[in-house]
Simulated assay, not measured.
Amino acid sequence: MTQTEQEAGRRARPRGRGGFLPVVVLVVLLLFGMPWWVLVTPWPGPVAVAGTVVFAVAAVAFPFLMFLGHGRGRDWAARVGDTMLGVVWVLFAWSVLGVVPRLLFDDRLVAVLVAAVAVVLVAWGVYEAMRVPRVRRMDVVLPKLGAGLDGTTVVVLADTHFGPIDRVRWSTRTAAAVHALKPDIVCHAGDIADGTVEARLAQAAPLGTIEAALARVYVTGNHEYFGEAQGWLDHMASLGWEPLHNRHVVVSRGGASLVLAGIDDATARASGLAGHGAQLEVALAGAPAGAPVLLVAHQPRQVAQAAAAGVDLQVSGHTHGGQIWPFHYLVRVDQPTVQGLTRHGPTQLYTTRGTGFWGPPLRVFAPSEITLLTLRAPDSGH
C-alpha cells in the first residue's frame, strides 16, 4: 500500500464537520469549567482573577494543541496537549465529586482537598503509565484443546501506542520482561503506535527481540488506520512477527493443534484502504476442523462475530481498562467489557488493560499489564 493510496483512503472518509465544532466547544467548557468553578471561585479577588486567567488560557490553547499534535503530527504539541488532557480530566472528575461536599462544608476546604487529591493522582498516574507493566497471570480452559498443548503459554500485548513521548527505554525493558517469561505464543492485539513506521521505528525496534517457541502474531488496531496500517503490518513481518491480516496460522505440539487467527480492526473497512476490513470467514478459511481457535481482534466488541463463528477464545485490547478513572464508564457504553475474562455464548473473551497508554501519560486505577494466559485442556487437572 503506497502513501498515496493511504492519503486517498483518508480523503474518502466522511468528515461530518458541521456538528463537530459545537461538540468540541461544549466538551472544553465542561472539562475546564467545572474545575474552575470548584477550585477558583471560592477565593477572593487576586487569586480568583489569576486562576480564571490560567483556566481560560488553558481552555483556549488545548484544542489547538490537540489539533497540531494529533492532526498535524507535531509531537511537541501532542505532548503538551495530552498532558493537559490528563490533568484536566482528573480535575474534572474530582471536581464533580466535590459538588456535594460544597453543600456541607466550606468551599475553600473542598477546593484544597480536590486540588490535593488531583496532585497525588496525577503523580501516581504518571508513575503507573511509565513503569514496565506488571505480569497478570490467568489460566484459561479450552474444551477442545488437545493434551499436547496443555500448559501452552500465551503472552498478550496491546495498545503499546508508541508515540510523541520517546519510550525506547520503556519498550526495551518491556520486551525484556516478555522475553523472560519464555512464552510459547506472543500476540500483539493492535494499536502498536501513533504515527508512521519511520517516526516510531526506534520505539518499536525492541519488539524484534521478543522470542516465542511457537509463534508471534500481530493484528491492526484502530490507531494504525490513522497512520499507515499496511506499513505496520509489513514492518512487523520484517521483525519476524506473523501479521494476521484476515488470516490464520496453525501451531502444533504433541499431536495437538491450535488455530491462531487474526482480523483487522473494526474500523478498517471505513478507512478506505483497499483490502482492509475485518473478515473472519476469510481468516478461518481452510482451518483444520475440530482444532480450537484463538482469535486476535483489537476491539472486544468484535466478539459478536467470534461467537457467531464458534471461536473458542478471543484476545483483545483497545479499552485500556479505562486508563484514567472514571473513564471506564464511557468505555463500557461502546464495548461489551472493559477488562478481564468474560464469556459470550460459546466464546471466551480476554480483554487486556493494555501495555502502554494513549495520549495522557497517566494511568489511574487502571494499571497496565503484560498478560500471561496459560491454556489448559479440560482434563488437565489444573
Rank of each mutant, 00 (worst) to 15 (best):
R169T: 06
D139H: 10
T160V: 07
L244C: 07
G190M: 04
A204L: 14
T209K: 06
G240H: 01
A147Y: 01
Q203H: 12
L233I: 12
K182L: 04
P164N: 07
W170N: 07
T209W: 03
G254E: 01
D191P: 04
E228K: 10
P164W: 03
H245D: 15
E211W: 01
N222K: 09
H223Y: 10
L157Y: 06
L201N: 07
C187M: 15
S238P: 01
L258S: 10
Y218F: 15
E224H: 08
A147V: 10
M236L: 15
V217S: 05
N246H: 08
L260V: 11
A199N: 11
P206Q: 13
A204H: 05
I263H: 02
V259A: 02
A266R: 08
E198H: 05
L260A: 12
H223T: 09
C187Y: 06
R167K: 10
V156D: 04
H245I: 00
G148F: 12
G190C: 04
D191A: 09
A193Q: 10
V219S: 08
W232G: 03
V249K: 11
V135G: 05
G262H: 09
G262R: 10
G163D: 05
G148T: 12
T196E: 14
L157E: 11
L233R: 14
L244W: 07
G195H: 03
R253C: 13
V135S: 08
A256G: 06
V141H: 01
D184S: 11
A229C: 09
W170T: 06
T220H: 03
E128N: 10
W241Q: 03
S171A: 15
L142E: 12
T172I: 06
V168H: 13
F162P: 01
L233N: 14
Y225A: 04
P183M: 12
A256W: 06
L157N: 07
I263M: 08
V168F: 13
D159T: 07
S252F: 03
H161A: 02
G240F: 00
H223A: 09
H245Y: 02
V259Q: 02
L207I: 04
D264E: 12
G262E: 00
T152C: 14
R216I: 00
I192A: 14
T174Y: 05
I192K: 00
E224V: 11
S171F: 06
H179I: 00
M138F: 00
R253M: 11
A261S: 03
G146M: 13
R136P: 00
L244Y: 04
D264W: 01
H223V: 06
M138I: 03
L260G: 08
A212H: 11
E211S: 12
A204S: 14
E128C: 08
V259D: 02
S238Q: 06
V259F: 02
D234W: 07
R137K: 12
R169P: 00
C187W: 01
V156E: 10
I185N: 07
L258Q: 03
L239N: 05
G255L: 04
G190D: 07
V135W: 11
H235I: 10
I210W: 07
A237H: 10
V154M: 11
D264N: 11
P243E: 08
